[in-house]
Nucleic acid binder design. Structure first.
Lengths: 123, 123
DNA sequence: AACATATTGGGAGAACATAATCAAGAAACC
DNA sequence: GGTTTCTTGATTATGTTCTCCCAATATGTT
């Protein structure tokens, strides 16, 4: 059976407290505040386990290794800060996507990525 | 000075005839129709040269290695076919992007990626 | 507390994309 | 045509991300 370890708790907590998608390295850094001995292998292992469990979802952005976020948030997009490199959630969705889909193509889903400076880095 | 080689001609021609972004491997396959001995190292070398020259631009899509397309096309987005894995250009741009940008964030640019089936794969 | 076993940490290593190396070949110029 | 030197092709190396392995450790159970 699945055990409730300090490491797994720290990892889950990091996601909940961060409130935005985390890369494995970001996750390691945050979770190490709870469990300083945490290793990167454990991070990857738990990311996989939490994904299979349906608790985590993958966030893929152009030219970036995957990040992960807590699942079940409903349709949203992401904002990537070019300064601090963090990714934030964006509510809502711009207008008529079907309208720009090429003739004859079947649109199934879409991703939208905003770039710029987050509130903190803007100053 | 820069020499005009069969390989370089084949690579340029592949981009022009394809009319959509190419991965290094796709480029190799296409350009080998002209120059069967073409090697992957030459492909990467010429991609870099053509980029520095401003003739090529990088197209980054989520979770994918970069593709490249002929530069100077003006603002557009991309459609990724889940079946044939090819990427196509999409004209136009959906509505009000600033409207969904989080409070206090500075929006500088955006990417938009459509997914589904291209005309050929739809059948 | 003692046991059974899931989990961890750290290092080795697989997988992938791309860059460096270098001898051989091919453009450009005389 | 001969020479110079840029370019190529094949191989090897590199960087990155992620997985595997295994002895040591921690958890849940009795």
């Amino acid at each position: 059976m699945q055990r409730d370890t300090r490491q797994r708790r720290a990892i889950r907590r990091a996601f909940e407290e961060a409130g935005h998608p985390l890369s494995p390295q970001e996750l390691l850094d945050l979770a190490q505040e709870d469990v300083k001995s945490l290793g990167i292998a454990t991070v990857y292992r738990n990311i996989r386990a939490l994904q299979e469990e349906g608790w985590l979802e993958t966030v893929e952005l152009p030219g970036e290794p995957p990040r992960y976020e807590v699942a079940g948030k409903g349709h949203h997009h992401h904002f990537h800060c070019r300064d601090c490199d963090r990714v934030f959630e964006v509510e809502g969705c711009p207008g008529n996507i079907q309208a720009i889909t090429p003739e004859g193509f079947k649109l199934e889903r879409h991703e939208f990525v905003l770039y710029g400076l987050c509130e903190e880095c803007r100053t």
